[in-house]
Design a binder for these strands. Structure first.
Lengths: 197, 197
DNA sequence: TTGAAACCCGAACGATCGTTCGTTCTTTTT
DNA sequence: AAAAAGAACGAACGATCGTTCGGGTTTCAA
C-alpha cells in the first residue's frame, strides 16, 4: 500500500463485503446483506463510501495495487530470470491464497464499474500483466536462447495467468497441498511441462 | 446433444440470454432485459421456462453436456495418449471459442442454482474433469514412465483447465492467433513447458 | 369447422433494491 | 465546558425486481 492505512474500519468492511460478494456476485449482494455482515445499519454504511459501486472499486483498487507492489518489489531485488519467475509465481499464489475472496470479486470483472473507474482498474491490471510478461520474456530468452514474437509471448503470459488465477475455483490447502507446493508445481509445469520432475 | 433438438426458439433464447448474462452477470440481467433482447414480451418468456433460474440451469446443462459428449466421442476414437491429449485440448478450445458467452456464464458458478440443480451441474463438471484427468494421467505415465500421486495428478489437471478456461478473459481470434494456434500452444506448454519449440 | 395446443401479450402483484433524510449518540478538539 | 467532527441509526423514497393472471392470437390435426 502506498498510503498509510487511513481507516481500519473500512478495511474490515471491505474484507467482509468481499467475502459475501465472492459467493453471490456483485448484483447478488445487497447493501442490506453487507450491513448485516459488517454489524452496521444500512444507512450507517454510507458513512464509509458514496455508494455500492464505490465498494467494488475500492476492493479492486486495493487488490491490484497490492499485487503490483509485490511485483515491483521483486524486480528491484535483481534476481536472475529463473529466480525472478519462481519468485513471482510464489508471491502471486501466496497473495491469492491469502485473499481468496477479494480475488474472486476481482475476477468477476470490472464491468459493473463506471467507465472511468473501469478504465483505471484495467490500467492497473495491464501494468501488472506487462510486468509479468517481461519476466516471462527474460526467462524464455535465457532458456532457449532466442525470444518469442509479440503474439506468442502474450499468449504464453496469459497461459501462466490461467494456471495461477484459475485456482480460485478449485484450490483448498487441505486437499491440494500447501501454497508453496502449488506455486512450485505451476513453476515446474510452466517451465518444463507436466511430466517434469 | 442426447435428445433431438426439441425447440429452435428456445435455442435462440438461450444463446441471446447467455450473451447478455455473460457481460452483466446473472443477477445483473433482468427478465425485462432478456425479453427485449429476444424480441418477446416479459410474460411471453415464461412460456419457455418456469423462471429465471431455469434459464441458467438450461445454459449450464446444455454446455457441460456438449463438452462431455465431445470428450466421450474422443475416447471412443482409441487414440494413443499424446493424440488423445492433443485432441482433447483442441476440442475443448474449439467449443469454448464457438460458445464464448455461454462459457462465461458457466464459469460464474452454479451458486445461484437451487441445491438439487447445482448438484446436478457439479456432477456433470466432475465427470468431465475425471475424463480429462484420465487422459492427463495416461499421457504422463507414457512420457515419464511412472504415474503421479492422486494429489499431484489432480493439481496438474486443474492447471490444464486453468490454461484452457482462462481464455474467456483475454482471447480474441484477431489479436492472439487462431483457435488451432491457441490449442497447439497450450498443448506444447503443458507437455514441454513455455520454452519448447 | 371445430377444438386443442402452442405461442404471446398488457397490466398488475408484492418484494426488494440502492439511496436519502433528519436525528441521535459518542469522541475529539478547542 | 462548549463546539466540532465522526459514527451510527430508523424510516422512508422511488425504482426495479421476478412472477402471475386472464385473456388473446396463430397453427394445425381431426
Amino acid at each position: 500500500m502506498l498510503e498509510t492505512n487511513p481507516n481500519p474500519n473500512l478495511d474490515e468492511i471491505l474484507i467482509r463485503s468481499a467475502r459475501l460478494m465472492a459467493h453471490r456476485g456483485y448484483h447478488g449482494t445487497s447493501m442490506r446483506d453487507l450491513a448485516e455482515v459488517t454489524g452496521r445499519s444500512l444507512s450507517g454504511l454510507y458513512h464509509y463510501f458514496e455508494g455500492k459501486e464505490d465498494l467494488l472499486y475500492l476492493i479492486n483498487k486495493r487488490g491490484f495495487s497490492s499485487l503490483l507492489d509485490l511485483a515491483e518489489d521483486l524486480r528491484e531485488a535483481g534476481f536472475g530470470p529463473t529466480e525472478m519467475l519462481k519468485g513471482l509465481i510464489n508471491r502471486h499464489i501466496g497473495f491469492f491464497v491469502d485473499h481468496l475472496d477479494e480475488m474472486r470479486v476481482m475476477m468477476f470483472g470490472t464491468l459493473e464499474l463506471s467507465k472511468d473507474r473501469g478504465r483505471e482498474i484495467n490500467r492497473l491490471k495491464e501494468v501488472y500483466r506487462q510486468n509479468v510478461q517481461e519476466i516471462v520474456q527474460a526467462y524464455i530468452a535465457e532458456a532457449r536462447g532466442s525470444g518469442l514474437s509479440e503474439v506468442e509471448l502474450a499468449r504464453k503470459t496469459y497461459l501462466l495467468f490461467g494456471m495461477m488465477n484459475w485456482i480460485f475455483g478449485w484450490y483448498s490447502s487441505g486437499a491440494h497441498g500447501t501454497p508453496e507446493d502449488l506455486a512450485d508445481d505451476i513453476f515446474r509445469t510452466f517451465t518444463e511441462g507436466c511430466a517434469a520432475g
